[in-house]
């Protein structure tokens, strides 16, 4: 049976996004069996990436597993949602070895737990003691301001907005003055040499 009818049997809907891309949303308890059936029955044997999106307003993480066929011509996005507070997913590293590093990164950046994973240690950040940084409630601007004391200004520092305002007004005044002078000069010229009527056609 083909993909859409098999998924209808499990009461899941297959959305086709373009020529190569499909998407299906599933609940967390059906995730592993659906992934295995994708591998065994429909030849989507490659795990290309595991993506995570933080939906802070709904209190959920939306996890997407992107699988690709052996012939490399179709991709399916298997999407599921998990709670933010107790985020935990079944580990896939026994099925796909590349899932080990992807899950390690997701653990560091989002705080998702993978019970049974062999190396849940840091990936790119060393001695990180704050909340996982890619969560949306981690404010990078506030973190940078709190970690780095800004140096004071130079003693001859000027306020940019004030200076630009002064410059614009000076430019406007100079332009006005130039116009007035040009008008005065033109009036002077006309007074000295009255304009001569040029006869057009004979």
């Amino acid at each position: 049976m083909d993909l859409a009818s098999k998924l209808e049997k499990l009461s899941l809907e297959l959305v086709q996004k373009n020529d190569y891309l499909y998407k299906v949303s599933v609940k967390i308890d059906q995730l592993e069996s659906l992934l295995l059936s994708f591998i065994n029955e429909f030849n989507y044997i490659t795990l290309d990436s595991i993506n995570c999106r933080d939906d802070l307003e709904d209190g959920l993480f939306t996890i997407t597993y992107c699988l690709q066929t052996e012939a490399r011509d179709h991709i399916v996005m298997v999407q599921t949602s998990i709670e933010r507070e107790t985020a935990s997913l079944p580990t896939m590293h026994t099925i796909w070895p590349q899932a080990e590093i992807m899950e390690r990164e997701m653990h560091e950046m989002f705080g998702v737990d993978f019970p049974g994973h062999p190396t849940l240690i840091d990936f790119a950040l060393e001695y990180w003691d704050n909340i996982p940084p890619l969560r949306r409630d981690f404010d990078t601007l506030e973190y940078v301001n709190s970690m780095n004391p800004f140096r004071g200004q130079r003693t001859d520092a000027l306020d940019t907005k004030e200076e630009m305002k002064k410059k614009r007004e000076a430019k406007k005044a100079a332009k006005l003055k130039a116009e007035q002078e040009a008008a005065a000069k033109a009036a002077q010229e006309e007074q000295n040499n009255p304009k001569q009527e040029v006869s057009g056609d004979e």
Partner: peptide, 12 residues
């Protein structure tokens, strides 16, 4: 999210 070719090549 960026998935480059080197992530899997370097680790796995």
């Amino acid at each position: 999210q960026v998935r480059g070719p080197s992530l899997v090549h370097a680790y796995t």
